[in-house]
Design a protein around this nucleic acid. Structure first.
Length: 450
RNA sequence: GCGGGUGUCGUAUAACGGCUAUUAUCCCAGUUUUCCAAACUGGUGACGGGGGUUCGAUUCCCCCCACCCGCACCA
């Protein structure tokens, strides 16, 4: 059931401590969300599962964690200060609709508009008398930069300007040489990173789907260019192994072969992976073949030789790159959507999160059957302490009656609830109740294995 | 950023230019309760923010903020 609406999901997320509106007590800040205790647990579990699959379980991918602030030359070399991230927009003065200036020029038969400076675009629009699609006058070209600008150090001028990174990739490209010189990895090899990125989106929308600050997990896989199709296929196939870990229904994953005109400036082939959310089928990850665009440009701008020398030969070349990108927050949203399940139990509606066990924020909940019986509470405390050592994320709940506790745990996706009753005092067995089936089993304490 | 709409306890809601702002649920404390949101008692908790009109504004007006829908944008 992923026909759950965003409102239902956001409501549950807030009520149960997963996700809150950013800066909420001051009326919020558009495009920011804060993760609460349950949310951060889920997020970290997803992130760790990703790291395990793509870094720890492979011998050819190495992790890094690079700075968010980078020398501004990085963004010049990567093309982020030009078209693409810094979009030239014009406004129809009558309808107030906005258009990409370069797109408008090309529609009017002007070639290579993308390569023009913004001044040239503005001049061309004036000289050719170009009107909006509705036939109205246009405003001047205004640049909208998707990157958040900041200044490093006490002086605020052009030389101190920097940006909050809009992707992790550049941190890995600028460290490619360091890693080659310190670890001497064989080709192909990858550099992986999970971290915060910032994009000044024009209009943040759809809960945590389109936001201004979020977490990307991505890796740059450096290859011999002649192998790109083979490697692309392998990484493509592995994407589905990953979505299996999240418990996503493969039937809800769609691939979008991004056509050349929509691809990023650097990419020769891109596949977007989309998930069928209730609010639409939307991108949650992608694989892009970035060619040698990044390393070549960094070589050109920095003067550092980016060539890789194949061991045991004199063959040298700048490696090409395939980049799988995973939006952590979007994957979390997909995971929640997929897990949100409504069924009926004893004639009542029951909402539960059918999260994969490994991802559940709380692994088990321990309660005494009755909280006003000290001997039960004492025994339950012992079991709780024991399980906490074993499993870590264990919750204690003695509130209300037992059914209420079960329902509460259902809503946060806890796979098992363990109840201590009078029989426990006699034979050291407890009931273990399963989230998905609501069935209970009598298990000896030492055999609790959830 | 544009156009339209919305904004009341955590959640879902009601009413009102004037009495202590309604109800349910959740939450907290207690009684009770031997396995799926039982019952009872008590309790905490809200008019998004700022300004204006007014004797008095949650209610009317303006600005801001956030959210929803549409447009545009989405490397």
């Amino acid at each position: 059931m992923s026909d759950v609406t965003l409102e239902e999901l956001a409501s549950l997320a807030k009520r149960r401590g997963f996700i809150y509106q950013g800066s909420e007590i001051y009326g919020g800040l558009a495009g920011t969300w804060d993760y609460g205790p349950l949310g951060v647990a889920l997020k970290r579990n997803i992130e760790q599962a990703w790291w395990k699959m793509f870094v720890d379980d492979r011998d050819d991918v190495f992790g890094v964690d690079t700075a968010i602030l980078m020398n501004q030359k990085v963004w010049e070399a990567s093309g982020h200060t030009g078209a693409g991230f810094a979009d030239p927009l014009v406004e129809d003065l009558k309808t107030k609709k906005r258009y990409r200036a370069d797109h408008l020029l090309e529609e009017n038969g002007i070639k290579n508009a993308e390569a023009m400076t913004y001044e040239q675009m503005a001049q061309t629009i004036r000289e050719k008398g170009i009107k909006s699609p509705d036939g109205n006058e246009l405003s001047d070209v205004r640049v909208f930069n998707m990157m958040f600008e900041t200044n490093v150090g006490p002086i605020y001028d052009e030389t101190s300007k920097s940006y909050l990174r809009p992707e992790n990739a550049q941190g890995m490209f600028v460290n490619y040489k360091n890693v080659v010189d310190s670890l001497y990895p064989d080709l192909p090899f990858g550099l992986a990173q999970s971290g915060r990125v910032f994009r000044n989106e024009i209009s943040p929308r759809e809960f945590i789907f389109r936001v201004r600050e979020f977490n990307l997990m991505e890796f740059e896989y450096f290859i011999d260019p002649k192998d790109w199709e083979v490697e692309f296929k392998k990484l493509h196939d592995q994407f589905y192994e990953w979505t299996d870990v999240l418990g996503l229904d493969r039937a809800k994953i769609h691939e979008l072969e991004v056509p050349a005109e929509d691809r990023a400036h650097y990419s020769k082939r891109t596949i977007d992976f989309e998930y069928a959310f209730s609010f639409g089928t939307k991108e949650i990850g992608a694989i892009a073949y970035r060619t040698d665009f990044d390393l070549s440009n960094h070589q050109k701008h920095s003067g550092v030789n980016m060539e890789y020398t194949i061991k045991g030969s004199n063959e040298k070349f700048i490696p090409h790159v395939i980049e799988p990108t995973f939006g952590l927050d979007r994957m979390l949203l997909a995971t929640l959507s997929e897990a949100y399940t409504v069924d009926e139990l004893n004639g009542e509606k029951r909402v539960f999160l059918k999260l994969p066990k490994a991802l559940a924020p709380v692994k088990a909940c321990v309660s005494p059957l009755l909280k006003n019986k000290p001997e039960l509470v004492k025994k339950a405390r012992e079991v709780y302490t024991m399980l906490q050592k074993k499993l870590g994320a264990v919750m204690w709940d003695d509130n209300g009656n037992i059914g209420k506790r079960y329902r509460r745990q259902d809503e946060i996706g806890t796979p098992h609830c363990i109840t201590i009753d009078f029989q426990t005092l006699e034979d050291n067995t407890v009931t273990v109740r399963d989230r998905d089936t609501a069935k209970q089993q009598r298990v000896a304490i030492e055999h609790i294995d959830v």
